[in-house]
């Protein structure tokens, strides 16, 4: 709309700062000022009737400029002075606070997909009785520090609720507490409903584990993050990987120029 004024900042000798071209795209005030000056210089050669008309216009121009300045100020007030109320979101939808990292909607979609996929594994579908599964920690190879337990916990909960006891998870991460309880029973310090000297800790049929790998690109145009989620079901007897599935999510965004 207005001509762009291209200037250069003063050159500096300090190596810590670099001179650069400067664009002034919004030179509206400058244009108004030039118009006012032009009007002023031409007034001295006008007839009396035209004088009055031009002075009227000049006043109008001043008022418009003042109104523009005031209008600009009106938009600089405090936004949401009373704050924002609580917004309830579904875990699988993206909120208004977002980054390119692992977020709740990713966790929900990935774990839902994995739980569905595990249910179709023939070794589980056709198993006689319960299939015992132990969770092994997920390995995080991305640039995002995450609570890895969330992924496996959600898969476990989905499978427990959907298979109604067909898949049983063993609480190996609680072994220290379980062994302590067994020792208390064996020593007679606490009561026991069965023979405490008989080992009843169950062995696993399968191990469920996973890995997160990532790739990141960053440039002046923004940051892009790709995360590959892979999960495996490993046969505890043969070490064969009986099932594996993946999910991949890519996100990109750009920070405000004030932070670049």
């Amino acid at each position: 709309m207005f001509p762009s004024v291209r200037l250069f900042s003063r050159p500096t000798t300090d190596s810590q700062h670099f001179s650069m071209p400067v664009d002034v795209p919004q030179a509206n005030f400058f244009i108004l000022a030039v118009a006012a000056l032009t009007l002023a210089t031409s007034l001295t050669n006008l007839s009396p009737s035209m004088h009055r008309c031009s002075i009227y216009r000049f006043k109008q121009l001043t008022l418009i400029a003042m109104a523009a300045v005031l209008a600009g100020c009106a938009s600089s007030g405090v936004r949401n002075p009373s704050g924002n109320g609580v917004t309830v979101l579904k875990a699988d939808e993206q909120g208004f606070v977002a980054g390119t990292g692992v977020e709740s909607q990713d966790i929900v979609s990935v774990t839902d997909k994995m739980a569905r996929s595990i249910l179709e594994v023939p070794q589980i579908q056709r198993a006689q009785g319960q299939t015992r599964v132990v969770l092994l920690p997920i390995e995080n190879n991305t640039r995002f520090a995450i609570n890895k337990d969330v992924l496996l916990s959600r898969i476990r909960a989905r499978l427990n609720s959907q298979t109604r006891g067909k898949v049983m998870f063993l609480a190996r991460e609680r072994m220290a507490a379980l062994e302590r309880e067994q020792q208390l029973k064996q020593s007679g310090q606490v009561t026991s409903g069965s023979d405490p000297n008989v080992v009843e800790f169950q062995g696993a049929d399968f191990f469920l584990t996973g890995k997160l790998d990532g790739s990141t690109t960053k440039s002046a145009r923004g940051v892009s993050d790709y995360v590959l989620y892979t999960f495996q079901l490993i046969d505890a007897r043969t070490s064969a990987i009986v099932w594996e599935d993946l999910a991949e999510i890519k996100k990109q965004g750009l920070d405000d120029a004030a932070y670049r």
Partner: peptide
Amino acid sequence: LGGLTAGDVSAQKARGYFQSESRK
């Protein structure tokens, strides 16, 4: 730091002629 600042109102204001950068 992990969140993107796109749409950050304080950053938008800091870029304005009449707000200092330290407003962000």
